[in-house]
Amino acid sequence: MSSNSDFAEGLRGAFPIMASAAPFAVLFGAVAIANGQTVAEAALMSATVFAGASQLVGIELFGHKVQPWLIVLSVLAVNFRHILYSAAIARFISHFTPLQKIIGFHLLTDPQFAQSVQRGESGKKVSFAWYLGFGVMIFVPWVTLTVAGGIFGRLVGDPRIIGIDVLLPIYFMEMVLGFRRKAGFLPIVVVSALASVLAYRYVGSPWHVSIGAVAGVALAAFLPSATAGAEEPVE
């Protein structure tokens, strides 16, 4: 059996990704404490949600005292891309057992998806051992470094002193910029931005998220590119 070497190959393959994700685990831990979670709760969230961007969105909204259902809905929205991933990855992992699929889908992050598809398309088998090794190398440090960030955040106290409060909006901005080559990007972002600022100003804090998002999504459905770009392959 080559499952041991596959596992080791997975571990090695994910190492650079883990290294670049590490600061965000620390950041999440520190922000979670600043927004009212305990270290244990932050660790629980990292282990059970295990999706960095949505964890940061969730904890940001929690800090704004947004209603729980809206937090869950926003986490769902940020993670929506995973639906495309799990659809696209299906043909490579159909040989997993049901339990392996459940574990596998929990570990399905952006890099896990990208590397699995690349491996599968190159003709190599996406074995469970390789997949697990890759996922573990991201999962274990992600949770561990969340705890480290949480302990650090508790030591510092006020997040403004070390400038943590500016990092989240910039991090989210980078994610928005990541979509800038998609059809209809600019009108969608402008409408969402205007609607959310107006809602923030005139309706009140939690509502700016749903009002702004609904405005952008509704626009997207009715843009001419909605039907024109349908034939283009998904990147």
Binding site: S192, A193, S196, G212, A213, A215, G216
Partner: peptide, 10 residues
């Protein structure tokens, strides 16, 4: 995703 994230930035 872009619409939701924008409401956290603007």
């Amino acid at each position: 995703p872009a619409a939701v994230l924008t409401t956290l930035v603007a």
